[in-house]
């Protein structure tokens, strides 16, 4: 964990309301793992006050990217930042995705902006050619669909579900998952999910029904990011856990789905 200044390389609107920011910060990038997150101070004033958390979208030797949706004051301020501006970074924070040794098959399930940290994971998994990785992206519509080309560019089978049917199937990402798992017998992939909580819980139920290992990245309001304020509690089967320190990635068998 480091508190550093990074330099913005680019900050572009990639879809209406969604931005991709690339930051030069080798020291943080060097220690970051897929599934971990960082917090950024989005303004120098007291409004917004708290730092904002973002998952690492892509990680390279020199820096990282974050993909974010403009939803409030923090992300709005961030979207106005320009290349060569500096950002105040705290990270990497949290645990990251664990990749069970010896497993070959993986399915990534992304809902909305929840796709952001899953690309870093996909890149890591795709580096091992023996691994078979499939991706399901759920989105409101074609207009807000993110990262499809990215996953396809990695050579991964990518399936789409939209609420309005404007792209892929008109259903939930978890419906596509259910169907996909039913095609091949004895297909027992490890599942990774990030997105709205109802989607995560649905993935958890699918995993339980089929006896699959499943991990999901959770979101909560984050204040300190380092496990000090105990503000980001998540109820688990083993009592409250902290999203910032024990998570943000949890084994779904720990979560009440």
């Amino acid at each position: 964990m480091q508190h550093k200044k990074g330099r913005i390389i680019s900050n572009k609107e990639v879809k209406p309301g969604y931005y991709l920011m690339a930051v030069h910060c080798p020291s943080v990038a060097k220690t970051a793992k897929p599934g971990q997150f960082l917090t950024i101070r989005c303004s120098g004033s007291t409004e917004p006050l708290l730092r904002r958390p973002f998952g690492f979208h892509r990680i390279s030797a020199l820096g990282f990217e974050i993909l974010y949706e403009v939803v409030g004051k923090g992300t709005k301020a961030l979207s106005r930042m320009k290349p060569s501006d500096t950002v105040d970074i705290l990270g990497p924070l949290g645990n990251g995705f664990s990749i069970p040794a010896g497993k070959r098959d993986f399915v990534i399930i992304a809902g909305g902006i929840g796709v952001a940290p899953l690309t870093a994971l996909a890149e890591e998994l795709a580096r091992d050619k023996k691994k078979n990785v499939s991706v399901i992206i759920g989105s409101r519509s074609k207009r807000t669909l993110l990262c499809r080309e990215h996953f396809e560019g990695l050579g991964l089978k990518t399936m789409i579900a939209t609420d309005d049917g404007s792209c892929g199937k008109k259903c939930f990402a978890t419906d596509v998952l259910d169907e996909f798992l039913a095609i091949k017998r004895a297909f027992a992939p490890t599942l990774y999910a990030c997105g709205p909580e109802p989607m995560i819980r649905a993935v958890g139920r699918v995993a339980k029904k089929r006896g699959l290992k499943a991990y999901a990245s959770f979101e909560e309001n984050i204040a300190c990011g380092v496990g000090a304020c105990l503000g980001c509690a998540l109820r688990t089967k083993n009592g409250y856990k902290l999203v910032c320190k024990d998570g943000p990635v949890f084994d779904l068998k720990e979560i009440i789905c």
Binding site: E47, P48, L50, A223, L230, G231, C232, A233
Partner: peptide, 12 residues
């Protein structure tokens, strides 16, 4: 029980 924390104008 969560949520335990929320930002308010210039405050938490």
């Amino acid at each position: 029980p969560p949520p335990r924390l929320v930002e308010t104008p210039s405050g938490v």
